[in-house]
Design a binder for these strands. Sequence first.
DNA 1: TGCCAGTAAAG
DNA 2: CTGCCTACTGGCA
Length: 822
Amino acid sequence: METNGWLFDLYPLGNRLVLWFITDTGERLRLEDDFPYCFYLGGPPARLRALARTLQSRGWLSRSYPARGRDLWTGEEIPVLALEARAYGLLFRLRHWLGTLPAEVECYNCDLDVASYYLYARRLYPCAWYHLEAGEGGRLRRLDPLEEAFALEFSPPPFLTTLTLSLTRDPLISLDAGNGLALGWEGRTLELTAPDRPGLLNELARLLTRLDPDLVLSDGGDETIIPTLSRWSRETGTPLPLDRERGPVDRKFGAPRSYFSYGRIVYQGAAVPFYGRWHLDRRNSFYYRESGLAGLRQISRIGQMPLQRAARASPGTLITSMQLSRALADGILIPWRKGEPEGFKTAGQLLTIDKGGLSFMPPPGLYFNVAEVDFASMYPTIMARHNISPETVNCPCCAGAIDLGDEAKGRGPLPPPPSPVPEAGYHLCRRREGLVPRTLRPILALREQLKARAREVGGEAAAPYRERQTALKWMLVTCFGYLGYKNARFGKIEAHEAVTAHGRDKLLTAKEISEAAGFRVLHGLTDCLWLQKDGGTDTELRENDLSFGGTGVSPVRVHGPQMLQLREWQSPLPPFRKGGVKKSPFGKGGFRGIFKPAAIPNDFLNTNRYQAELEKLCHKITAATGVKLALAGVYRWLCFMPSRQDPKRPVATRYFGVFEDGSLKVRGLACRRRDTPPLVRRAQEDLLARMAGAGTARELAALRPELEAMAEGFRQRLREGSVKPRDLVITRVLPQPLADYKVDTPTALAARQLEAAGIHLLPGEQVRYVHAEKKGGPKECRIQAAPFLETLDGYDAEHYLELLERAIEEIMTVYAAQPPAI
DNA sequence: TGCCAGTAAAG
DNA sequence: CTGCCTACTGGCA
């Protein structure tokens, strides 16, 4: 039988791969394919033969044969022994046994995910259309792709029948404890409650059978719903057909875990995949949250990972998967990641190793007609352009000034040496393109295409392109982060350093070119610059009359060892809190604006000529650095925030402003913080939205009374005590195990309350609580944790007024410098 | 007042 | 498939 099918799901079962297709006639087709798991051993040939004999005698192998493969680090081809496991079920024991071998034996390709290994080896991509031929007994005979893996346009995916699952009450309340189950399908909803467990299970089972959903989209399915229902199913003997796979499946309730990523703890709940249909838990999928179903299809496809696994994978896993696929396609043997997790680093080590991105400090204040220019995908582009990869940094093949053996080895003369990595002085390989650049190049290209396409089509039609673009962004971001992780399979700290060193160099170059073109650089942050055209003087009152600020820091290029101190030099650290202003950043002799003489007349700055000048500048910098620099926009006005500890000092990461098109950009303010209660967030967002309508200094000034009135309205609501608890909930992540707390912070108190109620939180999980009304009681009573807010007796209005006040003050910073009397 | 623990942001 | 740096707050000595 021949047909067209969309590769929907796949998993290993027994000693075959099971593949599910949705055909163009809407059939759900299950096919099986043989795929022997092949791994390789390198080392003394006699030793390898002996090992193969041992494994044969245990019955773990179906066959073994000599083969050749390329070593990742040297690029040389080496002889290896290829071994095929007799069944997937033996892989666990096999790996354990291989782990006991001495160092003289190298193991390759032995710890790959079976489904992904199959996809790499067969060059197949999930969520794409194929022409397929099915043979006897549901076996796959042939599979020909009908579309490119990296295609800009997805052929339309089949219609997916969807069932939604969620809880009717707070997700921390278990089904056992009386929470209800809400089902949704085809626009209908059904709520089921627990008392009659077999009844509930039967109802769900009937629906699963009748509807046969492709996608079960849940809120909390991984963590609570499915595990509880499965347990009930076992306990009551009521069948629950979660899978399309008929036979027994080895459903592993993957253990929940907490891990660190970018210096922050992340909680990943247990995973509960279904066999032959998708189960996605919205609460347990980073990529679903960030980039939706279109983003998930995108990463499942190019990451060559079954979609359910891709949904729960950390971005690092995905980019690694692509690197593995690239390596396999290039005939590179994949080294086994045997190593133990990286040990603790001392503070000193961190300081010398990682200097990260460059930042200039913006003089705090309000500015008009500021242009923001951003490098697009700076770090990944640097990796691709400068050939930065773990095996290319200080590679042995290009080491030394002159490799005298080169000609003799018949490798030809070296290409002319490019300049070494700035600051670090490392050399990068000139013979081979690295694995990381080879992997990144097509992702970067696709992302640019998706971004352009989203701009072209605009509106609602742009959403899928935007989602896919966002998914790729996260892959690219983590590829860089992962490069610095010593124990990552394809990581090396020097490669990481080389990338950030190039990044600093490029930002500095951009600054120099901007200044040479007559722009003033107000601020810079890793891959962005904020520019203002400074020019002639004009004594008339202009928008720019309002620009004010303290002394800006203006780093210059420093050669030699001083370069290494660039960051410290940029932000000298005066003692904290010297005369610190705790309450208001600009009250009582705090922050004062400094008026600058007028610069360029505003009408010039709104002309096409200004735009054209900026475009020209971007081109020039793009050409000089090799990384695309684009105009993010021109702000009508932009406010850089002062430090709260020392109002004369700037902070790099807090600012807000309005672009020419009226859109807001807000960074670092209360409304961007996870731990800001909804009421305070709404207050700040409402004020900001109103301010976005003001384009000039005059309009901003005119708005002030209205903003004050709005702010007073929010204060009033809090004082009246009429705010609902849910609008006061503060959400934080539990950053460490509860037992490690030395201080009774609100987070610790709330987590302890939950603990007492039998709800155990792991590091990285969210804690939600409200500051209850203070009555001088013990501190345990000052906090009330969600979900137990029904019994809340009243909130600590004073505390929330304080939070609200801070949020309002942030916004009112704009008026810290009064416009001169007109 | 100084110090420390705890928590979060932007890139 | 795992440990940026910096800003800021609140509590304690």
